[in-house]
């Protein structure tokens, strides 16, 4: 019997497979394809203190082996989220990680405080890494002092484990990981998207209305594996790895680099069953290699 359970910040996940925030809504849309009970956790789309309209369209475009997005964190705000999305997720036997976004520290704290004591939520993932909004998000994740400050303040305002989601758009990911750990983060997740750009040469226009967007998909996987390796070796808190994961083998690669759990992001759009395929692929790999406990391979290289 193989054991796929992993533990992060005292939370036991039945397997290490989640999906990347923003690629799965709150699970409703993909529940037509995926039995959410099978997932280690559902990580929700970023939710702010108030509804955010997001960016103008076009918001998405395809690039070689991936895509760019500049959604701009359209979301209904924490109140609707708590009334509609959490009751939906409560029905499932999976862990719920709420991704929190904001323009100011106060915005983040408002969301975190509303979720304090709410037993429907297992952990918070703090988005300090979205490259597509003018204020907040990535501004907190690219400056050591700002990252330290927001992490400390959130930790002081919530009873939930805090996962800081880091951006790859920094000079040294190890430094940012250490700052998050030093400020009390219970875990880190990475990578968010890599800032990119595409130009439509026929129309002499930017492909995205926002000009720049975050790149995701299999094409960024080697960058993500490298950063997960660097970050996980710089800190002792658990790392959730993501960036172009499509198969069980990809997930194993991230775990060998040092990730305790993994998220499937853009590939949900390509294969709506991707999360289930990754779980199955991990189990097949374990059987093939006679691995009894998935924890054996974490950081093994």
């Amino acid at each position: 019997m193989i054991k796929t359970e992993v533990e992060i910040a005292g939370i036991k996940f039945k397997n290490p497979v989640m999906e990347g925030s923003g690629t799965f809504g709150s699970g409703m849309e993909y529940s037509e394809f995926v039995d959410l009970n099978k997932l280690g956790a559902v990580v929700t789309k970023g939710v702010a203190n108030v509804p955010w309209p997001g960016n103008p369209t076009p918001r998405v475009c395809e690039v070689y082996g991936g895509m760019l997005n500049a959604i701009g964190l359209q979301n209904p705000g924490i109140d609707v989220f708590m009334e509609r999305d959490l009751p939906f997720l409560e029905k499932y036997d999976t862990k719920v990680i709420v991704n929190v976004c904001g323009k100011s520290v106060a915005d983040y704290l408002e969301v975190c405080e509303k979720l304090t004591g709410d037993s429907r939520v297992d952990a918070l993932e703090i988005n300090v890494s979205c490259p597509n909004v003018k204020e907040g998000a990535i501004a907190f994740g690219t400056d050591k002092k700002a990252l330290d400050d927001i992490t400390r303040q959130i930790k002081a305002h919530t009873d939930k484990p805090v996962i800081m989601k880091l951006t790859p758009n920094v000079t040294d990911i190890s430094e940012m990981a250490k700052v998050a750990e030093g400020a009390g983060a219970d875990a880190i997740s990475l990578i968010n998207t890599i800032t990119g750009m595409k130009i439509d040469i026929e129309r002499r226009r930017f492909a995205l209305a926002n000009k720049t967007g975050g790149m995701s998909g299999p094409a960024i996987k080697p960058v993500a594996v490298r950063m997960v390796y660097q970050a996980s070796h710089a800190v002792s808190i658990p790392v959730i790895g993501m960036g172009g994961i499509a198969t069980g083998d990809d997930a194993i690669e991230f775990m060998m680099a040092g990730a305790t759990a993994v998220s499937v992001g853009m590939m949900n759009f390509v294969n709506p069953y991707a999360t289930l395929d990754v779980i199955k692929g991990i189990e097949e790999y374990m059987t093939r290699h006679g691995i009894e406990d998935i924890n054996e391979i974490i950081g093994c290289v």
Binding site: G22, T23, F24, G25, E29, Y30, E32, K45, P51, W52, P53, G54, T57, P58, R59, V60, C61, M67, N69, I71, Q74, N75, P76, G77, V80, M266, N268, F269, P272
Partner: peptide, 26 residues
């Protein structure tokens, strides 16, 4: 509109509506 997921999860393909939309209320 340019789409990614096609199933309503990614919020890539939106159009401005005169009334509040039921999903994101924006």
């Amino acid at each position: 509109e340019r789409m990614a997921c096609g199933v309503g999860a990614c919020l890539g393909c939106v159009v401005k509506t005169t009334a509040v939309d039921h999903h994101s209320h924006v």
